[in-house]
């Protein structure tokens, strides 16, 4: 029995590392794209830079990130070859790096320049400002709107990761009806959707026509408070700050997964 329990705890810890690594690489890191669209410091950092990098976890996910023309793009397409490839030997190692610890991934391809690494670290620090914003920084309405946009995107991308890699969420995912769930902050966005088709979950940026279920947030503050776990969603639905129309069970099951994304990223 004791052995069984130890094994269960170990499995849970391993799963956690795996899920967090997928979130970090495929839901959080791609937010660099939106970071450089908005943040002046980030734009300054990548000015004149032309560079691509692939992060890969041994036996796990991989992401290709390209920096050029003042933009950042990311893709999971494994056929593209990057200037530099970095390999993490484990999920844990990847997570430690994303948590800001000094870890040395193995450059498995190309040359790894210290100056690039430094800039990348600086970009990550800037990203953190948006994904874990301080109360002070949120006083700026523009910044706050950007935080909400990036958080919404992290959530939409994160749900897809959990539906595939987290045992609880993938179990719940089976109950999510097929369709497209749209989340929109009023009056003018941001918006993001989660598409569920043939058991596959996929984020979509922006609005779609005729979503199966629409969840709207009265304003940026409502969305932020909900995303940061400060708002009682049921109460917000009742008093109209959050509205849901259409295929409610879809949003309902997705919300459980969304809450779990939040729990992992806390």
């Amino acid at each position: 029995m004791a052995n069984e329990m130890t094994c269960k705890c170990k499995c849970a810890a391993e799963e956690r590392q795996k899920v967090v690594a997928h979130l970090n690489m495929l839901a959080v890191l791609p937010r660099l794209e939106e970071l450089v669209q908005y943040d002046a410091d980030a734009q300054e950092l990548i000015k004149g830079m032309k560079f691509s990098i692939r992060f890969r976890v041994m036996g796990g996910p991989s992401i290709f990130i390209a920096i050029g023309n003042g933009k950042i793009t990311s893709t999971t397409d494994t056929t593209l070859s990057a200037d530099t490839g970095l390999l993490f030997t484990s999920y844990e190692q990847a997570n430690r790096m994303f948590a800001g610890e000094k870890v040395v991934p193995i450059p498995y391809w190309g040359a790894w320049r210290m100056s690039d690494l430094k800039r990348f670290t600086q970009l990550s620090t800037l990203l953190e400002k948006y994904l874990k914003p301080s109360d002070e920084s949120l006083k700026d309405p523009g910044f706050k709107a950007q935080v909400v946009k990036m958080t919404l995107h992290t959530i939409a991308a994160g749900v897809a990761q959990l539906a595939e890699h987290d045992s609880k969420a993938s179990h719940w995912a089976k109950s999510v009806p097929e369709g497209v769930a749209m989340f929109k902050v009023l009056p003018e966005g941001p918006a993001a959707c989660i598409s569920v088709q043939g058991g596959k979950f996929r984020p979509i940026w922006g609005e779609v026509k005729n979503p199966s279920v629409t969840t709207t947030f009265k304003d940026i503050d409502t969305a932020l408070n909900l995303f940061t776990g400060k708002l009682d969603a049921f109460a917000a639905l009742g008093d109209g700050d959050v509205r849901m129309s259409g295929l409610i069970p879809m949003a309902d099951h997705l919300n459980a997964i969304i809450d779990r994304v939040g729990w992992y990223l806390k």
Partner: peptide, 27 residues
């Protein structure tokens, strides 16, 4: 709606369970 707002201060979900207005058409 007024009572609901007050309920939200004291009761998780304001109206928990199957009577939640969230699965009707709030408003």
């Amino acid at each position: 709606l007024e009572l609901f707002k007050e309920a939200a201060r004291y009761i998780p979900g304001a109206i928990p369970g199957h009577m939640t207005p969230a699965i009707t058409v709030p408003g």
